[in-house]
Amino acid sequence: MSSTRTQRITLAKGLNMGLRKAMEDDPKVLIMGEDVGKLGGVFRITDGLQKDFGEDRVIDSPLAESGIVGTAVGLALRGYRPVVEIQFDGFVYPAYDQIVAQVAKMHYRSQGRSPMPMVIRIPFGGGIGAVEHHSESPEAQFAHTPGLKVVACSNPVDGYWMIQQAIASDDPVIFLEPKRQYHADKADLDDSMAPDPLFSSRVVRRGSDATLLAYGPTVKTAMKAAEAAATEGRSLEVIDLRTLSPLDMGPVFDSVRRTGRAIITHEAHVNLGVGAEVAARVQEECFYSLESPVLRVCGFDIPYPASRIEEDFLPDLDRVLDAVDRSLEF
């Protein structure tokens, strides 16, 4: 295909285009959630979809998250592929019971007879100056639940592809979208290019001195850190994990065996977060390659703070570089 198919898009646009494509490709794909119809969602991710696909396929739901996910279970049992939008991360908990006790277990309970090809989209992460419950990172709670798959996109092109792949998956996928990035940066999408598989991590910057691991909103932080470190002659490799359950550790192990050092950064609380699992696996598989302990640069173990100090809570360039220093000086 020619480059005329290349478009410059935001993450919000990529997700919107991906949802549209999935709905065009498969009439069983439905979108459900609060305000997803006429309004196009509070972040406009479903903008224009109800107008083009109708109210039967883009469903404005009553204001009840357990209801949304619970009825999506029924729709999935009936053969539909519901794509559910939870308006904000902190509002997923009324649906938590349906997600962990029903969505996650249905395939297992039914001995594979009742798959749950459902996507639960959750805008996650902070940095938008919001009030309580609008800036959280609940991924570990879902990654800890067998039966769910959990992915996080970090950029517009991945947004476009990963949402389609998640919808095509016959397993339920918790699909995390870094809300701070929705309208932030643009990237070129060439939809003639084949995407990476959904459940794969990816090296996004080559380096040799240490490996930075990130996903969702912290990929940008890690990339900036690598750029800053390069000006001081330090070569950092950056890996976008993309999938949190299952983890795709192959590229991580390859990298750490070369660099001998790993630092993972996520906005979610450090205690029992994804970083803990990654660190455990790295020391299991790369023990003799490690030159220093695996370090974590994460949200502190406090409830998400008031927004005027949220930048102190969130991992930033300086905190990542500080960890790089500690790793290299170990």
Binding site: N271, F300, R308
Partner: peptide, 20 residues
């Protein structure tokens, strides 16, 4: 006044943990 950064660690628990 903007809160002091370290104040974000206050009041997480009635009995603060050593970890925190």
């Amino acid at each position: 006044p903007d809160p002091k950064p370290l104040s974000m660690f206050n009041h997480v628990y009635a009995e603060e943990t050593d970890e925190l």
